[in-house]
Simulated scan of single mutants.
Amino acid sequence: MNQSNTPNVHQLDAKALICVQLDIKLWSGRQALKREHLVQSNPLLASLPPQDLASMGSVRICDPEEVRVFARIKNEAIRALGEAGLPLLGAIGVPQPEFPAVYRKLCDIGNKFNAKAADLFTKYDANASAWKTKWQNENPSNAHLLARLPSAQQVVGKLRFDFHCYTIESPKDLSAEAGSHFDRQVTGLKGELLAEAAEVGNDMLSRYLIRQDSSSHGGKREHITQKTLRPLKRIVAKLRTFAFVDPSIAPLADVIESVLASLPADGQVDGAGLISVWNLATLLSNPANASKIAAVAQTFGADQAIMDMDAPMTVPSAEPVDTSAEVIEAPRTIVQVIPAAQDFGMETQITSVRTPTVPNAGSFVDPCAFL
């Protein structure tokens, strides 16, 4: 990709992004437990430290499930924003083309939140009374803890779902230092993208590519499914959406897409395909390495970047490998068995470049044999 044809954040002055900031308030369903409440139950607790020094905790005043629903809706809104945007100056920056869909989704989530709040308001008095009666009957000595409950209006008044949308631009007519500070914050979006890609890589390694057993070391995965590849497809879409952040972002997406295109379109992924996925996940899990490969792809293309990505290449090992034998290296090696990184709990690591490394026995080491 020609760098001069790729817009960047400086050229767009961040106006390509709509900042969205959630404004959501929840109710805990709890009431502060005061020192005098405990002393009333047990005078021996009079020696408790003062309230200003130590918190006495809280007491539940309703069924926890009645308030958990609001936390779940809040998390749904956070996920919706996270899928479409990146953290930016205390908000989430969403590209303008994506914003209408995000706005509609947040409005739908807000309507769901408000409907649940209205339902809570309608049922609160009856539910709170039943909760109070239940616990006062079961714990008569602590009945006073639930003597004063907030009203339905007070409770629902604590709930709020809203969000604010705005654009940002570099400060005008201020010092160059202030402008450069803004630029550093905005161009940090590349780091946010690579960090998100690293989460995908680490998640794939820990959840899908390393099979955990009862021992301290992970075991090999003989295959993965098409479902396992979905996070990679999602991160490609995210990289495409934010390609304007840095000229190397789109080439990194090209690398991931090239690897995905080389895999079977359906069914299980094993053998050489599994090695490719392992290498890709390992690459993405390290933002510094991903950035280097992205730069290679930007200059020399995705194919060359994939060749570089495969050196070194780490795959699961089925059996321990004796690495003490002398190894005679050809000028350009394709397979070399060396001790693995303990971070992945693996026993073997394979480094791939071009032509074979020849052990003393003269046998060729097949990378697929380790799957």
Rank of each mutant, 00 (worst) to 15 (best):
S291H: 08
D162H: 07
P312L: 03
N8C: 15
A117L: 01
A126L: 08
D270Q: 15
I109L: 04
S170I: 11
S28E: 07
K123S: 08
F300I: 10
R354Y: 12
D13E: 14
R72L: 07
I18D: 06
N289D: 13
R184K: 12
W135P: 04
L283P: 00
G179D: 09
R60I: 07
G191P: 10
V315A: 12
A80H: 05
K132W: 03
D203M: 13
K112F: 08
V9S: 06
F99V: 01
A80N: 04
A71K: 07
W135L: 11
N42M: 12
I328L: 14
Y208A: 06
D270W: 14
N2I: 14
D213G: 07
E347Y: 15
T225C: 09
L45D: 01
A302F: 04
I328P: 03
V155T: 05
L89F: 12
L284G: 00
Y166E: 10
D310A: 15
P140W: 03
L38S: 02
W135T: 01
K220C: 08
V245N: 00
G201A: 05
K172Y: 10
R35W: 03
Q51P: 04
D308L: 11
I275C: 06
T241A: 11
P49H: 06
S216Q: 09
C62R: 04
L209A: 02
S58D: 12
D308R: 09
K190V: 04
I338K: 14
G82A: 11
Q3G: 09
N202G: 06
T299D: 14
P87S: 05
E257Q: 13
P64L: 03
P97R: 04
K25D: 09
G85P: 02
E192M: 11
R332Q: 13
P171D: 07
A46Q: 15
I235K: 01
W278E: 07
L120C: 03
R148E: 13
E199D: 11
A91Y: 00
W131A: 00
M313Q: 14
